[in-house]
């Protein structure tokens, strides 16, 4: 992702605009060029991977986002092994059961840190200053993760799966969607859990990170120096200047 963006930026950077006959600057026409300019403007690599952060980013609460990603990494890695070895493997092999245990605890840690991240961002009101969409995508990730975990529980092929399917069918049937999202259909749930939901969650997480990185870290609540369009970013001279 970032390599593509870097390539686009590099391609775009030397000629963001070309001099016209009158010596003025005109932008290259076309949709492709417009998208490239937009990406280069919104997501230059120095913005996506900054090596400095504002001084107020100084609390362990900020770490819960990255630990959530770390847990997702190992959940997907162990899930990939489980998918490769086939659905029956982990019931009969000690190594398989261990990989399943990694998957189980990876998912538990993913939810644990995702909820801590949510708590942190709530108490910091991190949706301020134009970040409402970042918060909304985070909530969608939470909901998508619940669907992912639910379908995962349904395809364990053990008593747990049987009972969860039998117990959960009524809620989904009540909405009328039971015929299309049939929790009793193992094949359907398997495809959704192993293929569809990991792609959905991963893409949403990438989008979420891009949102965070392009907008930057929200300033502390009540920071009297927070720039606004009205003040044009003016701040009292000398204060905390780097």
């Amino acid at each position: 992702m970032t390599e593509q963006l870097a390539a686009r930026r590099d391609a775009a950077a030397p000629t963001p605009a070309a001099p016209d006959a009158a010596g003025g600057m005109v932008e290259e026409p076309g949709w492709t060029a417009a998208v490239r300019r937009n990406l280069a403007r919104r997501m230059p690599l120095t913005e996506l991977l900054p090596s400095t952060q504002p001084a107020y980013v100084g609390s362990w609460v900020y770490v819960f986002g990255v630990t959530t990603i770390a847990a997702l990494v190992w959940t997907i890695a162990s899930g990939t092994i489980l998918a490769f070895m086939g659905s029956a493997w982990w019931h009969t092999s000690a190594l398989g059961h261990f990989v399943n245990s990694v998957h189980f605890w990876g998912a538990q840690m993913f939810f644990l840190f995702m909820v801590l991240h949510l708590w942190g961002k709530f108490w910091m009101a991190s949706w301020r200053d134009g970040r409402a969409a970042t918060w909304a995508v985070g909530v969608v990730i939470f909901l998508a993760s619940i669907v992912t975990a639910f379908t995962g529980y349904l395809i364990q092929e053990n008593f747990d799966s049987q009972w969860i399917a039998v117990n959960a069918k009524d809620a989904i049937n009540a909405t009328g969607l039971g015929g299309f999202f049939n929790v009793l259909n193992f094949g359907q749930m398997y495809g959704i859990h192993v293929m569809l939901m990991p792609i959905v969650v991963t893409l949403l997480v990438v989008l979420h990170i891009l949102q965070v990185r392009t907008r930057g870290v929200v300033r502390p609540i009540g920071d009297p120096y927070t720039p606004t369009p009205e003040t044009g970013g003016d701040t009292p001279e000398g204060r905390l200047e780097a």
Partner: peptide, 15 residues
């Protein structure tokens, strides 16, 4: 507001 403007006046530290 760009990110640069948004961070204006805040000390930036290595991270």
């Amino acid at each position: 507001i760009s990110k640069k403007e948004y961070y204006r006046g805040v000390q930036m530290l290595p991270y």
